[in-house]
């Protein structure tokens, strides 16, 4: 599954993936969110993250996601969002990297669902810490539902994309 490639090429591919994720992230920012609930989002950029989780080494995925979050918050001008998405992504990545050992590629959408739910859980934890308001927990059910749906969507997208980018791995 993981082919040995020269480091320079691997690095270049990671750079391209980061750029793609960033572009998707910024395009998604322009789409108005129909649900005015903090934290509810489709998270299309995570298609790239899920793909990377299944194709690259854990350390590489972590660096890629970290760079994407950092640059994303700089470009969107929302520095506070950095904290929330960093907490969410940390938990999400840990969970997905562990789940990758259990869940094979055919059930990748499932790993994505868990990843999304974990992401929302991390965000919720960060929001609780920042605002010190336990009643925020009432939002958690909404986040669970949206996490399941958004995770399912991004997971299925990744599953559709995977066979189509096999060509990259073979070159």
């Amino acid at each position: 599954m993981r082919s040995k490639k020269p480091d320079a090429k691997r690095l270049a591919l990671l750079g391209i993936l980061t750029a793609v994720a960033l572009i998707i992230f910024i395009v998604e920012l322009q789409i108005p969110n129909p649900f005015p609930i903090p934290g509810v989002k489709l998270g299309l950029a995570n298609i790239v993250t899920v793909y990377a989780v299944y194709r690259y080494r854990p350390s590489e995925v972590a660096v890629m996601t970290g760079v994407r979050i950092l640059l994303g918050s700089v470009f969107s001008g929302n520095i506070m969002a950095l904290l929330y998405s960093a907490c969410g992504s940390l938990l999400c990545l840990l969970g997905m990297l562990l789940l990758r050992r259990v869940i094979d590629e055919k059930h990748l959408w499932l790993a994505s669902v868990f990843g999304a739910v974990l992401h929302n859980t991390g965000q919720m934890a960060a929001a609780l810490l920042v605002t010190q308001t336990p009643s925020l927990l009432f939002y958690y059910p909404f986040l669970l539902v949206s996490g399941c749906l958004a995770g399912l969507f991004t997971g299925l997208c990744t599953q559709l994309i995977l066979p189509r980018i096999k060509a990259i791995d073979q070159t």
């Binding site: 059930h107 499932l110 868990f114 059910p141 909404f142 669970l144 539902v145 996490g147």
Partner: peptide, 17 residues
Amino acid sequence: VLIIVAALIFVCGVAGS
């Protein structure tokens, strides 16, 4: 098992909402 867990999370979320 994991699919069932995910489904449970979803149902809990809907009920909670």
